[in-house]
Amino acid sequence: MKKKKAYSTNFIIGAVITGIVLVMIIIGFIHTPYDITKMNSAVKLAPPSLKHLMGCDNFGRDIFSRVLKGMGNTFVIAFATVTIGAVCGVVIGAFTGFFGGWLDEVLMRINDVLFAFPSILLALVFVSIFGTGKYNVVAALGIAFIPSFARIVRGEFIKYREMDYVKSARLAGVSQIRIIFVHILPNTMTVLLSSIMIGFNNAVLAEAGMSYLGIGVQPPDASLGSMLSESQTYLFSAPWYAIFPGAMIILMVLGFSLLADGIKEK
């Protein structure tokens, strides 16, 4: 038996890209070359140069600094969203899948309704009621993400609850809560991890979309989505303004997708 399994190419490439992205995010939290709100009309829409690696925007702000900060914002929002969605989804999915019965029916029908509703639209409704801002977007997207996790976890629990080792655990007098979280949940980890990765990607895209629509991160704070939305006016005169934030979104999503693939294959 081989002790160490070789990682797939996807996994390695994904890990490298994600690593680079994470390093950039951490740098962005600690230090940015320029103040992200500092305007300088002398370098308005300046092209990339050694002084401004990714050029400057229409207010003369350094795009590189804003991209670093924006990635951080996007990452934190996506992370919080997935955490809310995954934790609530796992609990709901675990209980409905394990116990079945009327509780399962009721919760799953609510789930279906939520599922059928486009998540961006749901978030829009939420934001229009509670107002714009980071935290409202996190709450809105988090709720919108619950059904997909609940469904996956429920399916896994239905599969595992009839297994012999679950029966043996019951027969050892193990309480149902302990069976759910200690005996069955670790078995669902492979599926859960890769769906968390995919969920994370969707959250990155959803956040970018929301900020693009102007209801996510509010200016002058930066997010990749809001930068894209501001840049569209200058698409032809200053293409670097759109290219770099867009490329970063692609990198983040690509890195995590490849990682998710790698985990699934393993």
Binding site: M163, D164, Y165, K167, A172, G173, V174, H183, M189
Partner: peptide, 25 residues
């Protein structure tokens, strides 16, 4: 009440040893 007995006073061994152990523990 049942759980007081299960595993403590009464135990069971199943037919299929391949599936009666939790694969991740």
């Amino acid at each position: 009440t049942l759980r007081q007995y299960q595993g403590n006073e009464i135990s069971i061994v199943f037919q299929e040893p391949m599936t009666s152990l939790n694969p991740v523990k």
